[in-house]
Amino acid sequence: MSSARTSHHGTDPKSGGASSVAPGDVLIRFEDVRKEFRNQTVAVTDLDLEVRKGELLVLVGPSGCGKSTTLRMVNRLVEPTGGRITLDGEDIMSTDAVALRRRVGYVIQHVGLFPHRTVAQNVATVPGLVGWDRKRTKARVEELLALVGLAPETYSKRFPHELSGGERQRVGVARALAVDPPVLLMDEPFGAVDPEGRRRLQSEFRRIQSELGTTVMLVTHDIDEAVQLGDRVAVFSKGGVIEQIDTPLRLLSQPANDFVENFIGSGRSMRMLGLGHVSRDDLRPLEHVHPGATLASIPLGTSLDEAFAELAVSETGGVLVTDGSETVGLLTADDLLASLRRLVAEDHRDAVAG
């Protein structure tokens, strides 16, 4: 059957399911948090939000809605005016700000690599600050460069100006993960990369995050990026108000209000298709293929939106699905629609089951 990422806890469109989450499952908690700047601009008003251990939570919304301010309050680059933020049960205001920032990875759009330092030296920045020895640091740098897809023997001695935008962003991620922080904050991390490179980076980063189990808060203005990357997505309106926080599928299939629906915009069905993949459960037996029919083929695991594109140009209304050199079944438009319905139903059941 097709699959998509789903939360393991029930959700409430506005609260994010806080009531159904065990305290030990929460890494970051915002309690009645407010941020008002000196010019009396209120960026965030009475925010309650829980970030669960191991999840990738995306904050999305229009410009000026307080999502980046919310993110930066976690590592005290912006300090809250009121309320309380805890990291693993500890009030962040009771922690030295510099020590806190060394524990929290931070990645921004334009990376901020030191131009006069090599790739290896950039990645080694925080290990050096916290007193790691040279051998341990070198091993960690090589491990991380390999993890983000940059061969250490090729990239270690290069300088930032010798890298592409996507490569610099990968180095930025490696640097942020250097001391295995419990949480990684990312503010428009892929915004400066070209569209093709951005898609590759998103896919690669999702693999890394799943592999490491790092808790991630990511800010973006791009709803497509939000639903592709997030375990949950929080849609903000002005003043840091959460209009809905939910799994990508529930967000797309059941917008909580007009604001969310308008922000998502058109194309909700195609976005939902992008969250599922063709599996054996979706297929008809090969005896359903008409003798003599010439059909295009797609591999098992193809995203449902790519499968839809193939079906749209199929003269017979179906495509063959292969697993390596073996043809394993037939997919039709009816099968694809049924797969999408199952995908939404499963996501809803998971949320209700909590």
Rank of each mutant, 00 (worst) to 15 (best):
A178F: 11
A178W: 12
A178R: 12
V179M: 02
D180W: 01
D180G: 03
L184F: 12
L184M: 14
L184N: 11
M186S: 12
M186N: 10
D187F: 07
D187K: 04
P189R: 09
P189C: 08
P189D: 10
F190A: 01
F190K: 08
G191E: 05
V193H: 07
D194M: 12
D194Y: 12
E196N: 14
E196P: 03
E196S: 13
G197R: 01
R198H: 02
R198Q: 07
R198K: 13
R198V: 02
R199I: 05
R199V: 00
R200C: 06
L201G: 00
Q202A: 12
Q202T: 01
S203L: 14
S203P: 04
S203N: 15
F205K: 00
F205N: 00
F205C: 02
R206F: 00
R206Q: 14
R206C: 13
R207P: 07
R207K: 14
I208E: 02
I208K: 00
Q209N: 07
E211I: 00
E211Y: 06
E211V: 00
E211F: 01
G213C: 03
T214K: 04
T215H: 01
T215N: 04
T215Q: 07
M217I: 15
V219R: 06
T220P: 09
T220W: 10
H221W: 11
H221R: 08
D222V: 02
D222L: 04
D222M: 05
I223K: 02
I223Q: 15
D224H: 01
D224V: 09
D224N: 13
E225R: 11
E225M: 10
E225L: 10
E225T: 05
E225Y: 05
A226W: 10
V227Q: 10
Q228C: 08
Q228W: 03
Q228T: 15
G230T: 14
D231L: 07
D231Y: 05
V233Y: 13
A234V: 11
V235R: 03
V235N: 00
V235M: 09
V235L: 09
F236R: 05
F236S: 06
F236N: 07
S237I: 05
K238Q: 13
K238G: 00
G239E: 11
G239W: 10
G239R: 11
